[in-house]
């Protein structure tokens, strides 16, 4: 930062006149500004920071399974189980959150359009459809002859979509500045900026308003991960899938602590990893914004 020796003038935006400060006070202001808005870490840095907290429980779980497991291949079985659980959860969370966030944002933008109605429906239905209940319905459909993987993904994606829509809709309304008298009557920094710079509405929507609505939806990603973890455990147990949750419940039913604790520890690590991915995605959107 260059040193200044001359006084600096600040102008009050509300018309309160100019305020002149000396070089020392200016340096203090600059330091305070730096302190108030530190540069956010990059997405890769954030992920590498979160990896130890996510991977250590997974490694601990696998080591526990190798040491305490009732069968010789318990550690390998747990690793395969974690892969099955990840395969069930990750696509469902990604698609569910993306669809829910877009539908919720659309509900804030055009509440009476078809997408807006879907967004409102998802946002309103949040607490009504817990993942484990959808897993029961999916298990029923699978027993009736439906394919298990797409139904499982749908059962896990729907709660994530509801969560994202619930958060994205008010965020979109805030970004647009929707007050009681319509768009732009209550804040709406992005919209005002667009009007000020004369930008194309569509570009402003895509580059400023939509990210402002989607980023808070990713802020609730951790809750969606927890709900998906519970739903996946129910699904694996009801359908007899060889996931880590299913292994844990089978061991608990047999009263085997040595069989149940390693999958629990490993699932905690998987939860931390997925939550870290959500944080990285939110930071990436924030940076793009």
């Amino acid at each position: 930062m260059p040193e200044r020796s001359s006084p600096v003038q600040f102008h009050c935006p509300a018309g309160g006149g100019a305020l002149t400060v000396g070089p020392r006070a200016f340096a203090l202001i600059l330091r305070r500004e730096d302190h108030a808005s530190p540069m956010p870490p990059s997405a890769v840095r954030r992920l590498t920071d979160a990896l130890p907290a996510a991977l250590l429980p997974v490694i601990a779980g696998v080591a526990l399974a190798a040491a305490l497991g009732p069968e010789p291949g318990a550690a390998t079985g747990l690793l395969a189980g974690l892969a099955v659980t990840l395969l069930l959860i990750l696509p469902a969370l990604a698609v569910g959150t993306a669809v829910g966030a877009l539908a919720g944002a659309w509900a804030g933008l055009a509440p009476f359009s078809a997408a807006g109605r879907i967004g409102r429906l998802l946002a309103g239905a949040g607490p009504l459809i817990p993942g484990f209940l959808l897993a029961a319905a999916a298990a029923l459909a699978v027993r009736a002859g439906a394919s298990s993987l797409p139904l499982g993904w749908a059962a896990l994606a729907l709660p994530a979509a509801c969560q994202a829509a619930t958060l994205a809709r008010p965020a979109m309304e805030r970004a647009l500045g929707i007050g009681s008298a319509g768009i732009g009557t209550s804040g709406g920094g992005a919209l005002r900026m667009a009007q000020g710079f004369g930008l194309d509405d569509r570009a402003v929507l895509r580059h400023h308003v939509l990210p402002a609505a989607v980023a808070p939806a990713l802020g609730g990603f951790q809750n969606a991960v927890l709900a998906a973890m519970v739903g996946a455990t129910a699904l694996e147990s009801l359908l007899g899938l060889p996931g880590a949750g299913g292994l844990m419940i089978d061991a608990a039913r047999n009263g085997s602590a040595a069989g149940a604790l390693p999958p629990l520890v490993a699932l905690c690590g998987l939860t931390a990893f997925l939550a870290a991915l959500g944080h990285v995605a939110r930071d990436w959107i924030d940076r793009a914004r």
């Binding site: 951790q222 927890l226 973890m229 519970v230 455990t233 949750g245 844990m248 419940i249 061991a251 608990a252 039913r253 047999n254 009263g255 602590a257 149940a260 629990l264 699932l267 905690c268 939860t271 931390a272 939550a275």
Partner: peptide, 15 residues
């Protein structure tokens, strides 16, 4: 809060 504590419920009931 960041952990799936709900999984402890069936686990405790079983064990």
């Amino acid at each position: 809060t960041a952990l799936p504590l709900v999984l402890l419920v069936p686990l405790a009931a079983g064990l």
